[in-house]
Amino acid sequence: MSFEKFKDRNVGEDGYYMVDIEDYPETGWGKFKQVASRSLKGELFVGLWVVLREMFKFDIHTVQYPKEKLPIGPRYRAVHKMLRLFESGTERCIGCGLCEKICISDCIRMDTKYDENSRKEVTEYSINLGRCIFCGYCAEVCPELAIVHGGRYENASEQRAHFVEFEDMLTPIDALKAGQQEEYPGFGAIIPGSDKSVKKTPLAY
């Protein structure tokens, strides 16, 4: 449907037809005729035939959920992941606090300090997933593509403490070495072709 059509969809006539609904019978005889016609027309048997046919076709569409899962889209916003730098393996997070700031359900918190390498070190980071609404703002605002959304949507737990495990989110170092960390294409990722819109700074040396 084109955008124009979408906007005028109640005006045009094409593609629409009136459903043929008879008036309700008012006399007893009329009602009897309706019953008779409906009963004898075979509509009931059509219904029986359809379900029987489907039974024999045995074309089952059930996904047996815990054992089988449907693939989810790459832009799906489930439990966050904290990525590492591909080259060095260190955490990408620089502790800028923008995710903490932008979080509309106020569920992100971090503690930072000045570390021995004169860098800002994130000593503790927590996302209260019990409160998170998975809006994706944190991933969008992150300047380092450090916090992204993952595909793990099963986050029921019997303890609230389980909703804030940072270690669960961070890519394990061995997984990184095994090349299992993938760049995130969703919210906040670099738009393809954005290099073209960046002006170059003259660097003479």
Partner: peptide
């Protein structure tokens, strides 16, 4: 104070 907090917090 260095690196302990952001001003906006």
């Amino acid at each position: 104070y260095i690196y302990t907090s952001n001003a906006w917090e």
